[in-house]
Simulated scan of single mutants.
Amino acid sequence: MKRIEVEQRAIFIGLAGSHGYGLNRPSSDYDYRGVFIAPKRYYLGFDRIEQKDGGWDEPGIFPFLDGNKDTVIYELRKIIQLLSGANPNVLELLWLNEYPVLTNVGQHLINHKQLFLSKKVKHTYSGYAFAQIKKMESHRKWLLHPPQNKPLPSDFGIEEEATLSKDELNAFLEYLYLLIRGRIEFLEEAEQLYQLLTADIDFKGVLKQYTLPDETLDYTQNLTNSRKDFIRLLQKSQSYQVALREWKAYLSWQENRNPTRAEMEKKSGFDLKHGMHCIRLLRSGVEILRTGEVIVDRRIAGDAEDLRAILNGEYSYEQVMKMAEDLVAQMESVYQESTLPHKPDLEQINELCMELVEMQGW
């Protein structure tokens, strides 16, 4: 869809990112996030759209978006899905301080924001925080022990012509995923366990990100009726692809680092921004479980200066990791006492989605 069509059907656009958190600096970008409701053809026809995240140099009706590359406007059904899953980056959009665009339809969605809060926030907020920690650890490893050479197949005991390509690896792992899923279909009656194994655990991600351990090779060989030499080659090729992926990520990190951020990172020994966001996410998760509210603006939460101190390198890597460890333990405790429902009421959310579409009209 063209920019002007999306903006005409936008129900709200809010100022998110560092400005939303009250942590912006003079050089901070403006991150705008919003919601629009697609026209009739996208609901009843074959056309599909989930979000508009580019094309802000096209003609539009909101000048503050002109040329802004940090703008994403989600289609209603997409954002409802993300909200229902307690996605931290999206959940906070219903609790922002500033909405440059807000219609009565958008206000109706915001008025029902409590519908989307559930105990799932423990898993999503801690999961997003852990992702920040993984990035911190990767960058710290590159800072302290940078890789020297591009990995070669021979480093992993395989001939170059025998290496499985990325497509071949993914095709086999997709096959392995389907076999694993087939093995747990009989658990469908045990709803919670079935949900855990088929939805809450990302088997595809695990299979594609991590090398098969030695202790699983015989079972994998039997499950897939493969030759032993193929399974060994698969394991070695996985290890090679993981190393190659890390090498490419290292080169990209070196090339695209913000010079100021890189200098701070060099002095402190870790990525300060990832460290700050890790602590922010964990504190937010604890707050939601305890109060049933999302406090986006950290000035209101009372820890804006403390988060700025992390950004300014006033805390060591060890101190930030200890903070994270303590917050994870605190979240576990608060989770047990929280009065939030274990999961959102999807029937009510579905009714809300239909109400919003009807309010907007075609």
Rank of each mutant, 00 (worst) to 15 (best):
Ser237Leu: 00
Val206Gly: 03
Thr198Val: 13
Ala309Trp: 01
Gly22Ala: 09
Ala324Val: 05
Ser28Ile: 07
Val101His: 07
Gly285Tyr: 01
Glu305His: 05
Leu193Asp: 15
Gln360His: 13
Lys150Ser: 13
Lys2Asn: 09
Glu5Leu: 14
Glu160Tyr: 03
Asp200Ile: 09
Leu164Ser: 07
Asn111Cys: 10
Leu115Val: 01
Lys236Asp: 12
Arg245Val: 04
Tyr240Thr: 01
Val206Phe: 08
Thr220Ile: 14
Leu164Tyr: 11
Gly34Asn: 05
Tyr210Cys: 12
Ser226Asp: 11
Glu314Arg: 12
Gln319Asn: 11
Met1Cys: 02
Leu196Asp: 13
Lys322Met: 10
Ile37Arg: 00
Ile37Ala: 00
Arg3Gly: 02
Ser118Ile: 03
Leu96Gly: 02
Asn24Met: 08
Arg232Cys: 08
Asn104Cys: 14
Gly127Thr: 10
Asp53Pro: 06
Ala304Ser: 14
Phe12Arg: 06
Trp362Arg: 11
Val101Ile: 15
Glu7Thr: 04
Leu244Asn: 07
Asp271Asn: 09
Leu244Met: 14
Trp142Ile: 05
Val328Arg: 10
Met321Tyr: 06
Asp214Ile: 12
Trp56Phe: 15
Gly17Lys: 01
Ile231Asn: 01
Tyr175Asp: 15
Asn225Ile: 07
Val294Tyr: 09
Lys120Ser: 03
Asn111Phe: 09
His139Cys: 00
Lys135Val: 06
Gly34Glu: 02
Gln221Trp: 00
Leu176Asn: 07
Leu96Glu: 01
Leu223Asp: 03
Asp66Ser: 08
Trp56Lys: 09
Val294Glu: 00
Ile288Asp: 01
Lys208Tyr: 10
Thr220Gln: 04
Gly22Met: 04
Leu281Ile: 14
Glu185Ala: 12
Pro100Tyr: 06
Asp66Cys: 00
Ala129Glu: 02
Cys278Ser: 11
Arg3Pro: 00
Arg140Trp: 07
Ala38Asp: 03
Asp271Val: 01
Glu159Cys: 14
Thr224Asp: 09
Glu137Cys: 02
Leu217His: 00
Glu337Pro: 00
Glu255His: 15
Met331Arg: 10
Arg181Trp: 08
Asn149Glu: 04
Asn24Tyr: 06
Gln8Tyr: 07
Leu91Phe: 11
Asp297Ser: 06
Thr339Phe: 11
Lys113Gln: 07
Ile61Glu: 10
Tyr210Asp: 12
His342Glu: 15
Asp303His: 08
Glu189Gln: 10
Leu91Asp: 05
His108Ala: 15
Ile37Cys: 01
Met354Tyr: 08
Ile201Tyr: 12
